[in-house]
């Protein structure tokens, strides 16, 4: 590998009618699961505790074997390749204890490369590259995990999973143990990183807000490992398949949905419909609709002026309260009419 951090972008992962029943249990932990994660997407698995998120994820690297169905990575079945080779080519990040306490950070990052027989020089060079990638200082290389903070350890966990530049990554509540500020930071950085490396990621979380933020797609599981809905955050928030999903994404799903879109997407060019009054509040084009709504409410106005990101004197257009309200409901064709969700009215 050269300067480029990644030369192997993600490949598609497909679950085909996969069922897993643990020995000695009557009901399956994963029940006839079918879903496709497109190459380069992050798929968040959410659901209740015991809903089968971890199980579904571990089926991919065969830490758990399924009973029925098939799982394909880049078109080939996970059972058709050698299990060791399969696992060494899948990045694996888990909560907390992922790192080996008896190895230095450099050795931790080098685990899979060493298993694959890379030379010591190549492993060292790769560790340098990866510490850079996850924005850790090079002098961390010789330290031990216990000498790092939780957030730093989790960055090393990421670096280690990326060591051999695998096309696919599995992450089980990777940021679950971090404080909210650190979590937010590392989430942002991971998204930035993912923009460059474009891996296909299965990301388990029980936090719907994290799923909305991180997931290109979200799979909602219900108790018993049944897929309740699979779609983008906007689809889930705009048209939850049933009451269960509506409940799961939260009563404030309208507001959450407003967080997904930016003011500039809603702008109407000034003068066309609404000439904004001179005293109308202003907000940047890069602000979310949610921020816009908040500014609007705070001012008591019914119209917002949207300005250029770098130049708050240049108004690019206006957005009205009605437009914001419409944005909550639009493109929600599958919304069941019999479901009344508090907070939506």
């Amino acid at each position: 590998m050269t300067e480029a951090h990644s030369q192997r972008p993600g490949v598609e992962i497909e679950f085909r009618s996969v069922t897993k029943t643990y020995p000695g249990q009557d009901t399956p932990a994963i029940d006839n699961l079918s879903l496709t994660v497109p190459a380069g997407d992050i798929c968040c698995l959410v659901g209740p505790s015991g809903g089968g998120k971890t199980t579904a994820m571990k089926l991919v690297n065969r830490l758990i074997d399924f009973n029925e169905g098939e799982i394909l990575i880049g078109g080939s079945g996970v059972r058709d390749v050698d299990i060791t080779a399969l696992r060494r080519d899948i990045g694996y990040v888990i909560q907390q204890v992922g790192l080996f306490p008896h190895m230095t950070i450099e050795a931790n990052i080098g685990v899979v490369p060493r298993l694959l027989g890379w030379s010591a020089d190549r492993i060292k060079a790769r560790a340098v590259e990866l510490l850079d990638l996850v924005r850790l200082d090079q002098n961390f290389a010789k330290r031990y995990p216990s000498q790092l903070s939780g957030g730093q350890q989790q960055r090393v966990g990421l670096a280690r999973a990326l060591a051999v530049d695998p096309p696919v990554m599995l992450m089980d509540e990777p940021f679950g143990a971090l404080d909210p500020i650190t979590r937010n930071e590392i989430q942002d950085e991971f998204l930035k990183l993912q923009n460059e490396i474009a891996k296909t990621v299965i990301f388990v979380t029980h936090d719907i807000d994290e799923a909305i933020k991180m997931g290109d797609r979200i799979a909602v599981l219900r108790q018993g490992g049944v897929l309740a809905q699979y779609g983008t955050a906007d689809e889930l928030l705009g048209s939850p398949a049933d009451e269960y999903v509506a409940d799961f994404v939260g009563a404030d799903r309208g507001l959450k949905r407003l967080s997904l879109r930016l003011m500039r997407d809603l702008v109407k060019v000034s003068g066309e419909n609404h000439a904004a009054p001179a005293d109308a509040p202003t907000v940047k084009g890069s602000a979310t609709l949610r921020t816009g709504l908040s500014v609007l409410f705070a001012s008591g106005s019914r119209v917002l002026k949207v300005t250029h990101d770098d130049d708050s004197a240049t108004v690019i257009g206006t957005v009205t309260l009605d437009q914001l309200q419409d944005a909550v409901y639009e493109t929600a064709p599958k919304a069941p009419t019999d479901v009344v969700v508090a907070g939506e009215a």
Partner: peptide
């Protein structure tokens, strides 16, 4: 157990897990 499972998930074989992870700990 989590550490051992991480090792397995990364593609360590049984003896590699025993010698590189379990025994040192």
């Amino acid at each position: 157990r989590g550490m051992v499972e991480a090792a397995r998930g990364m593609g360590m074989k049984d003896l590699e897990i025993l010698f590189q992870v379990e025994l040192p700990n």
